[in-house]
């Protein structure tokens, strides 16, 4: 194909089938990424904001994954991890304010505990984990990834992932029982 034909073929190219793929991909991946951030940073507007940032970054360059939608899902997770890292880096700069915001005025710990849903209570326990532990838990239960996929994404060995997750979940379980 001559070069100018290649150029022309891209002009006005709007393939409905391809659009349908993106719709399906979005519907499939949005819960994964959104839940990754819920586990990573907690429920609420921040998780939505970071999810938006991830998808917008990915969408700008999405066409390189047009023929490899499975690869696109993996790539989304890579972007999400980077977005989360940036978020924590920024947040640490403002840690005193953020920490203060976590404690609503006038509410005792008992009152707060009663109001919290399971996930809110879990989020308190997640916040006590170190970065790597929390990220692995978020990948496992938020992004719904297998240990093998997590190992591939993080560069850890699969057995290492399994070990860290086992230890982390045990810690969460202990914390959960203590709070009960």
């Amino acid at each position: 194909m001559a070069m100018d034909e290649a150029v022309l073929r891209q002009t006005w190219a709007l393939d409905p089938a391809r659009d349908a793929d993106w719709d399906a991909l979005y519907a499939d991946q949005l819960p994964r990424i959104y839940n990754f951030f819920r586990w990573r940073v907690g429920d609420g507007a921040v998780a939505e904001d970071l999810t938006s940032r991830t998808f917008e970054k990915a969408w700008v360059a999405r066409e390189r994954y047009r023929r490899d939608l499975a690869g696109f899902g993996t790539w989304l997770v890579v972007i999400a991890r980077n977005v989360a890292t940036d978020h924590w880096r920024t947040r640490r700069t403002h840690a005193p304010l953020d920490a203060a915001a976590d404690v609503p005025a006038g509410a005792t710990p008992e009152e707060l505990a009663e109001r919290r849903s399971d996930f809110e209570r879990l989020s308190r326990l997640l916040a006590a984990l170190d970065d790597r532990e929390r990220e692995l838990v978020a990948l496992k239960y938020g992004a719904d990834m297998t240990n093998r996929a997590i190992a591939k994404a993080t560069g850890l060995t699969e057995s290492n992932v399994g070990t860290i997750l086992h230890r982390t979940i045990q810690a969460l379980r202990d914390g959960w029982q203590e709070r009960n």
Binding site: T11, A13, D23, Y34, N35, T51, S52, E56, W59, V60
Partner: peptide, 30 residues
């Protein structure tokens, strides 16, 4: 503990992504 995203959030984000898609597709080259 996984939850579906809020439908309004999901719809708004999809709208913004469509804007990116449309801009890319209709704005190619020429």
């Amino acid at each position: 503990q996984r939850r579906e995203p809020d439908p309004a959030f999901a719809r708004d984000l999809r709208t913004r992504l469509r804007a990116i898609e449309d801009t890319q597709a209709m704005g190619r080259r020429g």
